[in-house]
Design a protein around this nucleic acid. Structure first.
Lengths: 348, 348
DNA sequence: ATTAGCACTCTCTCCCAAAGAGTGCTAACA
DNA sequence: TGTTAGCACTCTTTGGGAGAGAGTGCTAAT
């Protein structure tokens, strides 16, 4: 996405910056008098008024009603984010809180995501989103069939990033352990190196031909195995800190809260949302830029984490358009690095 | 818990029942005149007023203020639930919607719970809670160590109900495949039949002695294996339909919503809550009966599902104290049976 | 180009009055 | 004696100003 940054006079920039900062902090329309009092701009309220009128006309500011102060428009936020905002250094305390996920040595990958989501929302004070590794982008490594007893077998699928999926299946009578090994070998040999997204069921059908057509039990087992093959295992989205959004004054209306939370309950939707934002290094979507009507008053700051240098999933923070972008960007960046590191150590 | 049901005259029962039903339906204090108009009780408002005054004094009813109608008190709801409420038959449409979870033939157990949670909240129109099988109550069956290559091994733990946990570990150099098999055999032999809750790390330490003290690599591997042993793998709680609570008029206050949602975000807390309710067949906790202050205006209807006749986890529906108990009880009972059946087929 | 002054606009809060709903009590009634 | 009609009273809710407060746009002076 190419964005042209309009030229604004240094003074207009200073005023716009002051307005956005002030509004982010106080959530109230800011007027010329207050602005002059609070920020040392060296100009009088009247001058500020004139500049504000200009910025208003240019579309950077809005007025809730004629005689209220100004608030940033979508365009105003965008300009702020693109060219006014100053990077904020995280406090050591926050860094330490975030780092806890790394220190705990959690045994399950699920626990890592859970903890990361919790901490991310806690530190950012907004809603946190974490999408698990994009399954389809991983590469098939091997299939294992581990018989538990004469009746059941565990199907293990291992990917290049070290994720292991398991599933229990029944063994039709008449299939020997050797045959199971043979099946696993054939799958492994044929599929090794394939991205999981390509493993759709029509492709897998081809493997049928490799096996004897005569063995009925084998055919049944294969059909079952293929039908339940863990391709397309959906991405998961972890969601945390939803209650933080209720602290925001713009969400003091229950109906508004409801419609937003409803969207957040649809994991598929969140998934698509985060997937969209995975391309850039750190992506910021402001208000209407989220296609979704219910999220027109929200912004998302997102970044992708990596495992072994490959982009695997996305983390994000969602808040009102009035969110503290500078701070959130720092938090998200920090968490991004942390998660990449933690998961890198976690898997092989 | 032993509850004594006070004797009330038939007429008082009829009036109380009418009041509770009406209030459940309309969420507004109900007065004598309205009650007489809406229900065919065959008595005048004045008489109803007298009875209401009695019920008020006895603690079954409350008045929001002097000149409003009455609303049920906690005691009123309790009486209603224990002795007035009539079982409600689910509509075929609802039964069908609930049954979908069974029909879909979901491949992962996680997907079953997800879907069940979604449907349960959808049909009940309240918040749904589902707790996964209580891990500690399951019984250890076997441990498997499946080497993936020379460097990594998958640790598989299988329980009697057919749940399989996996975990990837590094193999210290100097441990052979045969040794891995031997380790797995020892674990399996010693632990088979043990409930998982007993497998704490001090118990597992004893297994050390079985192995050669001389092999350093083996010792390291064992320590690692024991440290990461999946005992105490916490129960998970699935939560669905939280937005439904926002539809309830009693939650039109954002602060109230926030404090409730905050509690619902603490999975540990929910877990304990559901665990508490697992003893009875179908348990109903009304308002203050939930110890938690933030839930004093909520009720929970819960039931446990079974796998092979053993109580494994709990499902529940949470709504305002004013919830439609009759309907919710039917829904929960239906889902309980459904889930027991589905999971029974799912596992072995 | 900047600023002070001023009339004007719009919201928010507070207050008060009227309407509405329901109660409790009393007295009449079957 | 239980039931009912009538009535005064209470309490909340709603709607309509009045006044305060904040901010603007415009004009005229610096």
């Amino acid at each position: 996405m190419m964005r042209v940054i309009e030229m604004l006079s240094e003074r207009k920039r200073a005023i716009l910056k002051a307005i956005v900062s002030d509004y982010i902090q106080r959530a109230e329309p800011v007027g010329s008098r207050t602005l002059a009092r609070r920020y040392n701009l060296g100009i009088s309220p009247a001058t500020i008024r004139n500049e504000m009128a200009d910025l208003d006309e240019m579309g950077y500011l809005e007025q809730p009603h004629t005689s209220a102060g100004r608030i940033p428009s979508y365009k105003g936020y965008r300009y702020y984010v693109d060219s006014l905002m100053e990077a904020e250094k995280l406090s050591p305390a926050d860094e330490e809180r975030l780092s806890r996920i790394l220190q705990q040595r959690l045994s399950k990958i699920d626990a890592v995501f859970n903890e990361a989501t919790r901490v991310l929302s806690e530190v950012s004070q907004y809603v946190s989103l974490i999408m698990t590794p994009i399954f389809g982008q991983q590469v098939f490594q091997q299939l294992r069939l581990v018989p538990l007893d004469s009746q059941f077998v565990v199907v293990l699928m291992v990917t290049d990033t070290g994720l292991v999926q398991n599933r229990v299946m029944e063994i039709p009578s008449g299939i020997s352990a050797a045959e199971l090994d043979q099946i696993a070998d054939v799958f492994t040999k044929h599929l090794k190196g394939m991205p999981l997204e390509n493993l759709n069921s029509t492709f897998l059908q081809e493997l049928y031909s490799v096996f004897s057509r005569r063995n009925k039990a084998l055919q049944v087992f294969l059909a079952d195995l293929i039908a339940g093959f863990p391709y397309g295992e959906g991405e998961k989205v972890y969601l945390g800190g939803t209650t933080n959004i209720l602290r925001q004054p713009e969400f003091h209306d229950v109906e508004k809260v409801r419609s937003l939370l409803q969207v957040l309950e649809e994991k598929d939707h969140l998934c698509r949302l985060l997937l969209d934002m995975a391309s850039e290094d750190i992506a910021i979507k402001i208000g209407e830029e989220n296609r979704c009507l219910q999220m027109k008053d929200c912004s998302i700051v997102a970044a992708s984490y990596e495992i072994n240098g490959r982009r695997m999933g996305t983390i994000g923070v969602l808040g009102p358009t009035r969110m503290d972008y500078a701070r959130v960007v720092s938090v998200v960046e920090y968490m991004q690095k942390l998660l990449s590191k933690t998961l890198g150590e976690f898997l092989f």
